[in-house]
Design a protein around this nucleic acid. Structure first.
Lengths: 217, 217
DNA sequence: ACCCACACCAAACGCCCGTTAGGTGACGCG
DNA sequence: CGCGTCACCTAACGGGCGTTTGGTGTGGGT
């Protein structure tokens, strides 16, 4: 912006500037429609109609309907990845790490309700390669939480009788299921949800932890 | 199976015996296909093919594809209802009641994996009346768990600082999400899953609850 | 023997699907 | 002005969809 000596920056054909807005608009609207109605119940003409164009015109910007789905699901997976895997290096005790992981996980869901919903509902309809890619990726997320529990048991911060697989399942149930009920406009932030969930999960629901003593004052 | 002492029960035209096996077969295969591929990705010709017949022949037994979906979803809802609402009267303390409810809930999911999957995935595609019916029904399930938590707080068996809505959400996350990972042939029975989940939820994941030494000895 | 209900088939209906092909107007550059 | 590019449109393609219609063979009842 400050240089006045150079010529206008190649206005003829931007050589490597494929970041046009229209393609992103299509992906955004597709996320919304796929999450609201489902992949197979959304037609390309529906999608085009929401963008004020005809069905066939979409193909000037995208290659196919499958490609749209793959793009949305991959994007969601990358969001989870980016949020969670920076935690691997941290040296927090396991309970804090679980709390933080739940917070980030729920935040990704909350900030990407539409693509997260598509991710959880439509991954079965991906093309075979994308399908196995997503399946393998999910296994690494499972392993992430499982390892986190194992670490906690080893360091003594988590109960030693925990089943790591089932504990990871329980944590994942809590954070994933949020896509069915969380509403971004509501009164709870993702942090609120994560804090409440982590408090309940780590501390337990029961009132008296183990008061073996007679409770006469 | 019916009765062996009475004469053959009106063999000419069973006047009100619509419980033919074929209709049930169709519903069963439809449950399987809808749960595996999704409602919109399953065609009536697919369904008929699995039963060794032509697409049009289905309509001698059923009225429409929508009716099939409604039947499957309603059946699943009735299973949950029958399992949970007999608990309303019981006078157990809340932790036992939560444990038992989770057990029954997970057992319904495990014993009806296919229709439960259809229920959780395809309820958005129901006809408007069935849609609102299912939505309202889900609210009553939410309320059931919420009331259960409120009861526990009142009677002092659950932590007084619990948010009943969020606690019910957490319990429902655990038991509902089971449809995504539970496999009936595996090593865990629904009871095993429910016991582990209830232990973790009620008792908490953390090792040392809070070594009771707030006062100086 | 007749009859009729039954379970199913073969073919078609109208409609919508994802996708492609060719055309049209606007715009910026030489 | 001429040219190319871009975003989009109109129209169509082949095919699959849910569903309907008019048979056809079979088997038990009278």
């Amino acid at each position: 912006m400050t240089d006045s000596s150079s010529p206008p920056p190649a206005p003829t054909v931007p050589p490597a500037a494929p970041s046009k807005p229209r393609r992103e608009q299509i992906h955004e609207v597709a996320s919304r429609l796929f999450s609201e109605r489902g992949y197979h119940a959304t037609s390309m003409r529906d999608l085009a109609g929401q963008l004020g164009m005809q069905g066939g015109s979409l193909y000037a910007h995208i290659a196919s309907k499958d490609e749209l789905l793959i793009g949305i699901v991959d994007r969601a997976a990358r969001q989870f990845d980016g949020a969670l895997f920076t935690l691997r290096g941290d040296s927090l005790p396991a309970p804090e790490k679980i709390r933080e992981a739940m917070h980030r996980h729920i935040r990704v869901v909350a900030d990407n309700m539409e693509s997260a919903t598509v991710f959880f509902h439509e991954w079965k309809h991906l093309s075979p390669e994308a399908y196995t890619r997503v399946t393998n990726w999910r296994d690494t997320i499972d392993a992430f939480y499982r390892d986190l529990v194992i670490q906690g048991i080893r360091e003594g911060s988590l109960r030693p009788d925990l089943d790591p697989k089932m504990t990871a399942n329980l944590i994942l149930s809590a954070v994933n299921w949020a896509y069915t009920w969380y509403r971004p406009g509501g009164s709870m932030t993702p942090r609120d949800v994560a804090e409440k969930y982590a408090d309940m999960l780590l501390g337990g629901l029961q009132a008296a932890p183990k008061l073996a003593a007679p409770e006469q004052p």
